[in-house]
Design a binder for these strands. Sequence first.
DNA 1: TGGGACCATATGGGCGTCAATGGGAAATGC
DNA 2: GCATTTCCCATTGACGCCCATATGGTCCCA
Lengths: 146, 146
Amino acid sequence: MNRFLSNATNKIDAKGRVSVPSVFRTVLSALDIKDLYCFQDFVFPAISIGGPELLDRFERQIASEDPFSPQANEMSLLIHGGGVFTKLDQEGRLMVTDFIRDFTGITKEVTFVGRSDHFQLWEPQAFEAMQAEAREKRRLRGLPLP
Amino acid sequence: MNRFLSNATNKIDAKGRVSVPSVFRTVLSALDIKDLYCFQDFVFPAISIGGPELLDRFERQIASEDPFSPQANEMSLLIHGGGVFTKLDQEGRLMVTDFIRDFTGITKEVTFVGRSDHFQLWEPQAFEAMQAEAREKRRLRGLPLP
DNA sequence: TGGGACCATATGGGCGTCAATGGGAAATGC
DNA sequence: GCATTTCCCATTGACGCCCATATGGTCCCA
C-alpha cells in the first residue's frame, strides 16, 4: 500500500524534533525517498512533504507555460521560495523549524496527514477544524457517494 | 451472499479490540479483502469500512475533476487524511483506535451495520436512534415499499 | 426425543517486538 | 568558542502474535 493515508498526531520534543509516523516512513522507504521536499501548501495552512519528483512535477508545469508569465513567476515564487529540502534523522524524526512553525501555527504537537502521493504537517486543531468544514460542505452539497 | 447485511453489537475488550461478526468476516474473505479501508462517513457519525477498491472509487472521482480545485483538495483531505488502512488480527478482531472513538462516540461496545458493499461501526445508541429516525421519516412520507 | 459430543464464535490475557520519546555525547557550523 | 544539529543508547508503552476459556448452537446417536 504505497501511498500516504490516515492521520496521526505526535509530540515535538525539547530539541524541536518530531517522529514521522512509522506508516509514513514505510511508504517513504518503499518509494525510496531519502530527501524530503517540503513546501508551503497552496491551499491549506499546512506544510506538504514529498519526494524530489514532487518538485520536478511542479517545475515541468512551469516549463509547460510561458516562463515569463505572471503565473509561472508566482508558481516559482511558491515552490522555490517556499520550499526546502530536509532529511530524517536516523530514528525517523524531522526538525520542526521556524519555517514550519510560522506557516502552520504548530507549537507543541504535529498532525501528520496522508495525501496519497505526499503528506502534510498540520497544527492539530487547525486540521480538525478544516476537516470538519470539508465534511460539512460536502454534506450540504449533498453529493452522492460515487 | 457476498454482501454485508444485518447488524450486531460486540464488546470492546480491555485492550481496545472488538470481534468483527463472523458473517461479515465471511463476506470479507469471499471478496478476498485483506486490507480494510476505514474512513469517517460523510453523513453519519460512523466509520465506514470496505476494501481498497472503495478508496479507488473515491480517487477516480477526484481524478475526474480538476485536481487543483478546492473541492478535489477537500475531498482528498477527507478520504486520504480521514482514512486508514487496517487489518484484522488472526481471531478476526480490529483495534478500536481513538481515530474511531472520537468520531463515533464509541466507548465500550460497537454496533456493526451492514451496508451492502461495506459495513459501518456505530455507537449502539446512536445507531438505534438514527435507525428509528429513518424509519419514522419514511413512514411519514408514506413511501410504498417497492 | 433427549442427551452429550463437538464445533464455532466471542472474549480474555501473556509475552515479545517495535515505535515513540527522552536525553547524553560527539560533530558540525557560525 | 558557543550554539545548533546529528548520532547513539535507554525507557516505556502500545500493538501484534499466540494460546486459553466460555458460551451457545448444531449434529449425531442412542
